[in-house]
Amino acid sequence: MPHTVRRTGDIHPCPGTSPGVARAKEGRRNDPTATLTRTRSIRTYLEELMTTTATTDVPLSQPLYGASFGQSIRRFFTKYATFTGRASRSEFWWWFLVNAIVGIVIYGITYGIGISGAVVNDQGVLVLGPAYWIGLVLAIAWGLGTIVPWLALCWRRLHDTNRPGPFYFLGLIPFVGGIILLILLALPTDPAGARFDA
């Protein structure tokens, strides 16, 4: 129920709003040309967003800022073992998401089919079924197939933050290394990182 103020006899939708402002807001809501203008401005904005340099052809030697999901995956495999140049945050995080999803799916397959033929031996230990090895082979194949481009992508992402690629090895510090590396990979772009371009 709207709040009413009865000083002058007018009913206000809320305190502090004059009747003229309330009528103007109501008129804009019901005006079909205002709705059309808002729709056009949203459409224009989306068209401009879709045709920015992020979605056009950027040389592989340059980072693709605002890369889409598909562009990030394509660039990941195209620049398979390229450790020079830079990679934008969107290139990195889209691939990070894909890699996490694929890892979860492979893990689910591995243990899902492994449990199906599992038995408990005489010592009470669960022995996974023979189908477990199919999932394990998938996991090993995925890991071996993506380790080199993953390292290259991390290397290039560090270059984009104006840090040399060997900072990746900070991730090997026990307990805190992974956190340090994750923070470095999440940092914004530093234009001085252009020094790493090939």
Score class of each variant (00 low, 15 high):
residue 74 R to K: 10
residue 111 Y to T: 04
residue 4 T to E: 10
residue 53 T to H: 14
residue 112 G to D: 04
residue 90 S to P: 02
residue 76 F to N: 00
residue 103 G to N: 08
residue 2 P to W: 10
residue 118 A to E: 05
residue 76 F to D: 00
residue 99 N to P: 01
residue 7 R to Y: 11
residue 82 T to M: 02
residue 74 R to D: 09
residue 30 N to Y: 10
residue 111 Y to Q: 06
residue 6 R to I: 11
residue 116 S to W: 07
residue 99 N to Q: 08
residue 20 G to I: 06
residue 93 W to I: 00
residue 19 P to A: 07
residue 28 R to D: 12
residue 62 Q to T: 03
residue 86 R to D: 00
residue 41 S to F: 10
residue 34 A to G: 08
residue 84 T to A: 03
residue 36 L to D: 15
residue 4 T to W: 11
residue 35 T to R: 15
residue 12 H to Q: 11
residue 47 E to H: 15
residue 60 L to W: 02
residue 13 P to G: 07
residue 71 Q to R: 11
residue 95 W to P: 00
residue 28 R to T: 14
residue 80 Y to T: 01
residue 34 A to H: 11
residue 125 V to M: 13
residue 29 R to D: 11
residue 44 T to D: 07
residue 59 P to D: 04
residue 88 S to K: 01
residue 110 T to V: 07
residue 46 L to E: 09
residue 68 S to P: 09
residue 9 G to R: 07
residue 26 E to L: 13
residue 10 D to M: 11
residue 118 A to R: 03
residue 115 I to A: 12
residue 23 R to K: 10
residue 53 T to V: 12
residue 66 G to V: 03
residue 46 L to T: 08
residue 23 R to N: 08
residue 32 P to T: 10
residue 88 S to V: 01
residue 16 G to C: 01
residue 42 I to E: 07
residue 75 R to K: 09
residue 109 I to L: 13
residue 30 N to V: 11
residue 58 V to I: 14
residue 103 G to T: 08
residue 28 R to Q: 13
residue 33 T to G: 13
residue 20 G to K: 12
residue 97 L to C: 01
residue 64 L to T: 08
residue 4 T to V: 12
residue 88 S to E: 00
residue 38 R to T: 08
residue 47 E to N: 15
residue 32 P to H: 12
residue 30 N to R: 15
residue 100 A to R: 05
residue 102 V to S: 06
